[in-house]
Simulated scan of single mutants.
Amino acid sequence: MLDRTCIALALVALSAVAGCGGGNGDAHSEPLASAFGDGARLSDVIGHPTWLDPDDEASGGCSYPADRSVRVTGITVVAIDRYDETSQGATGNYYVQDTLAQSAYVPEEGVPTPAFGMTIFNPSFSPPDLRLAPGDVTDVSGVIMEFAGPVVGRFPFCRTLPEIGGTMSFRFEGGEVQPTTLPLSALLGYDNARPYIGMLVRVENVQIAGAPSDSSGRYTARINMGAGVESSDIVRISNELYDLKSLGPVLEGSTFKAVSGVLTYFYGFRIAPRSPADFEL
């Protein structure tokens, strides 16, 4: 009859196992690799925008940073843009967040650590037939760039949208990220809001100001951010991720306990809910 201890030792895959007749069977001394991989964290690759110029409204003399190669591991897919609001192919972006990010705002400790989110611009996949879903933990290898806006109209004051173009691969599933609750003041102005681009955020006590705007399929509603706020600094609710106009709640004149969504940027900041469930009445 085989000794049960000998059988158990034979099943250990972390190191070569000594024979039952000798050796002490000690476990391998080297620690296992992190489940999130050994690549960079998003907060490591998102730089501070030192190229901003508050005197260059037309962005005519900006010193944008050069594109650079990055490898980021252990990031969770929080949303996938599959809704073509413009009927012109406006889909394909993936929004990811560091799986280890803080998920709650604690007033006595201040705003949670930012720079945990990213837009993955129209990625490719390895293997090519890979199909990802929200909650999948992935890696991405590619190039991080600071998108300055369309050639016909750059973002003002040398502002940019950080995004990665590259290849995504699957690591494991079940990495759901909860929205990070922020005070609305944390999103007031480009300098304040930029670190939260791509993150799944939640803002409380949201009042809609005026009637929603509907232009070329882009349906947005302004959040009441108080008096004296510049138009370009007003955060809007947008239909980038689902048919907000047809399937969402009535926005005009509404007040919500909270609204969640991915924070995006395109000439201004927007919260893009993923479904009607992102509105708390």
Rank of each mutant, 00 (worst) to 15 (best):
R4K: 13
C6R: 12
L9E: 15
A35C: 11
D38T: 14
D44Q: 13
D44E: 12
G47V: 14
P49I: 07
T50M: 10
L52R: 13
P54K: 12
S59L: 04
P65W: 03
R68E: 10
V70H: 02
V70L: 00
V70Q: 01
T76E: 00
D81T: 08
D84Y: 06
G89C: 03
A90H: 05
Y94K: 01
Y95S: 03
V106F: 08
G110F: 09
G110I: 08
V111C: 08
F116K: 10
N122M: 15
P127E: 08
A133E: 12
S141C: 05
S141Q: 06
E146I: 00
F147T: 07
V152I: 08
P156R: 02
P156N: 06
R159T: 00
T167G: 08
M168N: 07
F172C: 04
Y190K: 03
Y196L: 04
I197L: 05
V203H: 00
E204A: 15
G210Y: 05
R222S: 09
I223S: 05
I223C: 01
E230V: 13
Y242Q: 08
Y242C: 03
V250Q: 12
E252C: 10
K257N: 15
S260E: 13
V262H: 09
F266W: 13
G268P: 01
R270L: 01
